[in-house]
Amino acid sequence: MSMPTGIFILISLIKCAIALFVLLTLVAYIQLAERKIVAHIQSRVGPNRVGPYGFLQPAADAIKFILKEEVTPAAAHKLLYLMAPMISVVVALVAISVVPIGGTFHLFGYPTQFQIADINIGLLFLLGVMSLGVYGIVLAGWSSNSKYSFLGSLRGGSQMVSYELALGLALIGPVMIAGSLDLRQIVQAQSHIWYIIPEFVAFCIYLTAAFAETNRIPFDLPEAEGELGAGYHTEYSSMKFAMFFLAEYVNMVTVSCVATLVFLGGWHGPVFGPPQLQLWLPVFWFCLKVGFFLFLYIWVRGTLPRFRYDQLMAFGWKFLVPLALANVLITGVVLSVMK
């Protein structure tokens, strides 16, 4: 790297700050969008009191979260109880750092990417960091020292460990075709054809597993409100609860980004016009595709019922994992025949 270390650190810090700001705002507004869209699906109006069309609702929610009383259960394991939401948020935010959202641009006269950390094995990094997210949930449930929390965290833990396997195996097909674990190279390899076409089965597996991995309907058993109160975060209040909330939505953004990068060609799309437009259009296409996945999340939430737990586990282990393995095998055979 030819740029001086000082400049490199400065640019990285600027990118981190922007990413953090954009991400947190985005999460607040995904949440508003979710309430609005689900409301319309259910023939309601949704929040419309705070600001025009309810657009300031996230600000009101944030103030409410901060002002609420923090309650720590007397029987909780204090240290772990405090650490669990932190683990969840940190892991969720770290994962987004390797996601590239566009091409190369110049800052302070040095070329740099629309990405915080450009590493060789970005996809593996993402999977590794995401696999640590389960600690937040498991520790939250256990340290709360409450039945509902504990059952929720057991469900969450085993669900995430199970579906991680299908998630990772689904990504192997595209990685084999692209021949790289570098997210940028995977995107560049899709300049002719998006991997959703040759790897449609893998895409479906990934999407299903991603819903389970983020604990969203139809796989939101860890926080099934009808049975478990609120699942693993039952005993959490105020900002600690908000941190779990934040982590869940950031994870949604992350898995949507990965789906876009690996299956929908990343930032590829029609690019035209003056240089400035050519720089920003890919970013726009990327955001549009991620937005599609986020809408899908909300849409599914408003549409599908919840699985039963044994159905969820049987589906994951007896259907998704073998299917994903078969997909890897077929991809390998086809690739070696075409070679």
Binding site: S131, L132, V134, V138, L154, G157, E164, G168
Partner: peptide
């Protein structure tokens, strides 16, 4: 790099989760 992240995925992300599970 590869070994480093496999170390995290396999040991920290899977095996130790099972340990924690059993302890709980």
């Amino acid at each position: 790099e590869f070994i480093a992240f496999i170390q995290i995925i396999v040991y920290a992300g899977a095996i130790m989760v099972l340990f924690v599970f059993v302890i709980m």
